[in-house]
């Protein structure tokens, strides 16, 4: 299964970026093979508004079924939920650690956003 992880860098060892919409990079990792694709998210990160919505569309279009991140706001959560993606908030550590922890089945899917919208 393809897992999207918010990341500060472009490798599996990179630390996770706690932000979703304005994350520096999005890593889409195959949870079985650990093969990954890197997406530079700087365009969305610098968006005036709606960064979470845009990033949600990006990960969905690239096949992710689950998002592991730190904070997810209301508009992003709504978009992901509509697209049928599952979200796990409050995840930290490296990208690799996050995916391995997901594979170990220790996460429970979040039922809502854990951050207020930005104005």
């Amino acid at each position: 299964m393809k897992i999207a992880v918010t990341s500060q860098g472009a490798t599996l060892e990179s630390k996770m970026d706690p932000r979703f919409g304005r994350a520096a990079y999005i890593m889409i990792v195959d949870s079985e093979t650990m093969a990954f694709e890197v997406f530079d998210n700087s365009e969305n990160a610098n968006a005036l508004k709606g960064a979470g919505i845009k990033t949600s569309v990006l990960i969905s279009e690239n096949g992710a079924k689950v998002l592991l991140t730190g904070y997810c706001g209301p508009n992003a959560f709504k978009t992901l939920h509509t697209g049928g993606l599952k979200v796990v908030n409050d995840v930290n550590g490296s990208v690799k650690e996050a995916v391995l922890a997901f594979n170990d089945g220790i996460f429970t899917y979040s039922e809502g956003p854990n951050k207020d919208g930005h104005w």
């Binding site: 508004k49 709606g50 919505i53 845009k54 569309v57 978009t79 509509t82």
Partner: peptide, 14 residues
Amino acid sequence: FSAIAVIGKSLLVF
């Protein structure tokens, strides 16, 4: 302004 998102089989308006 990201007021429209097309995701999965849906179109969302913000």
